[in-house]
Simulated scan of single mutants.
Amino acid sequence: MSLNDPIPQEQWIPTQHTLYTPVAAEYLKLVALTTLLLGLIPVSIALAMMMLVMALALPWLLTGGLLLTLLLALWVYLRHLGARRLGYMVREQDMVVRRGIFWQRHTCLPLSRLQHVTLSQGPLDRFYGLSTLRGFTAGSPHAEITLPGLPSDQAEQLRQHLMAKAGFRHEP
């Protein structure tokens, strides 16, 4: 078989109908909290501006406030739903991350091309005991896979597993 020949269908490894490991429940809380807090600032500013512009015209203020509140609630819900649909699986040859609400995206990281894996934590991640795993591949500066919302101990275990599968040895 040459490089230009397609892989026979019986050798395909499906990603859409397999079980993905979800991210931590704490990540769902973190996404909801940060989205709500970041959304309250513009909503508060918009309401204050509406009060100034409308000179306390109550019906317009209530309608605008209700609309902004509904938009904020929708934004929080969609971000939470996106975090709930985030998942990953590690197979023999690769790691796959699934994300997306309306358009599902399955990103495969071939372990044979893995260069290095990093873990990162922001202050809120540390508070919730979470980490973000990033795997970088050879060939492109933009070839990476990002997986937020992992419990820190699980993220370290996954990092060690991926590096071992990629052929890197840990020297004490």
Score class of each variant (00 low, 15 high):
residue 1 M to C: 10
residue 3 L to E: 14
residue 3 L to F: 14
residue 6 P to H: 10
residue 6 P to W: 11
residue 7 I to N: 08
residue 7 I to G: 13
residue 8 P to A: 12
residue 11 Q to L: 15
residue 13 I to A: 11
residue 15 T to L: 15
residue 15 T to G: 13
residue 17 H to E: 14
residue 17 H to C: 05
residue 18 T to Y: 01
residue 19 L to A: 15
residue 19 L to N: 11
residue 21 T to V: 11
residue 21 T to L: 10
residue 22 P to G: 05
residue 24 A to L: 06
residue 26 E to W: 01
residue 26 E to H: 11
residue 27 Y to A: 06
residue 27 Y to T: 11
residue 29 K to L: 14
residue 29 K to C: 14
residue 31 V to T: 13
residue 31 V to I: 14
residue 31 V to R: 00
residue 32 A to I: 10
residue 32 A to M: 10
residue 35 T to L: 03
residue 39 G to M: 04
residue 40 L to Q: 01
residue 41 I to C: 10
residue 41 I to G: 10
residue 41 I to A: 10
residue 42 P to H: 01
residue 43 V to N: 07
residue 44 S to W: 05
residue 44 S to H: 01
residue 45 I to G: 08
residue 45 I to P: 07
residue 45 I to N: 07
residue 45 I to C: 11
residue 46 A to H: 00
residue 46 A to M: 03
residue 49 M to S: 09
residue 50 M to R: 03
residue 51 M to F: 09
residue 52 L to C: 03
residue 52 L to G: 15
residue 53 V to C: 02
residue 55 A to C: 00
residue 56 L to G: 11
residue 56 L to R: 09
residue 56 L to E: 11
residue 58 L to D: 00
residue 59 P to W: 04
residue 60 W to Y: 12
residue 61 L to E: 03
residue 64 G to H: 06
residue 65 G to E: 02
residue 66 L to F: 13
residue 66 L to H: 00
residue 66 L to A: 15
residue 67 L to C: 13
residue 68 L to W: 10
residue 69 T to W: 10
residue 69 T to D: 06
residue 70 L to D: 04
residue 70 L to N: 06
residue 72 L to A: 06
residue 72 L to N: 11
residue 74 L to G: 14
residue 74 L to D: 07
residue 77 Y to R: 09
residue 78 L to F: 12
residue 78 L to G: 05
residue 79 R to W: 03
residue 81 L to N: 06
residue 84 R to A: 05
residue 84 R to S: 13
residue 85 R to G: 05
residue 89 M to T: 14
residue 92 E to P: 06
residue 92 E to R: 15
residue 94 D to A: 05
residue 94 D to P: 07
residue 95 M to S: 07
residue 96 V to H: 08
residue 96 V to K: 08
residue 99 R to T: 09
residue 99 R to D: 09
residue 99 R to L: 06
residue 100 G to L: 01
residue 102 F to A: 11
residue 105 R to H: 08
residue 106 H to F: 15
residue 106 H to P: 01
residue 106 H to N: 14
residue 107 T to K: 13
residue 107 T to Q: 15
residue 110 P to I: 07
residue 111 L to A: 07
residue 115 Q to H: 07
residue 116 H to R: 03
residue 117 V to K: 05
residue 119 L to F: 06
residue 121 Q to G: 02
residue 122 G to T: 04
residue 124 L to A: 07
residue 126 R to V: 04
residue 128 Y to E: 02
residue 129 G to R: 02
residue 129 G to L: 01
residue 134 R to C: 04
residue 135 G to H: 04
residue 135 G to S: 12
residue 137 T to M: 13
residue 138 A to P: 04
residue 139 G to E: 01
residue 139 G to D: 02
residue 139 G to L: 07
residue 139 G to T: 01
residue 140 S to R: 04
residue 141 P to D: 03
residue 142 H to Q: 15
residue 143 A to P: 04
residue 143 A to H: 00
residue 144 E to Y: 14
residue 145 I to W: 08
residue 145 I to D: 02
residue 146 T to R: 12
residue 148 P to M: 02
residue 148 P to S: 09
residue 151 P to C: 05
residue 152 S to M: 10
residue 152 S to G: 02
residue 153 D to F: 10
residue 156 E to W: 09
residue 157 Q to K: 12
residue 157 Q to I: 00
residue 157 Q to S: 14
residue 159 R to N: 12
residue 162 L to N: 08
residue 162 L to H: 06
residue 165 K to G: 10
residue 167 G to R: 06
residue 167 G to S: 04
residue 167 G to N: 08
residue 168 F to V: 09
residue 169 R to M: 08
residue 170 H to D: 13
residue 171 E to F: 13
residue 172 P to T: 13
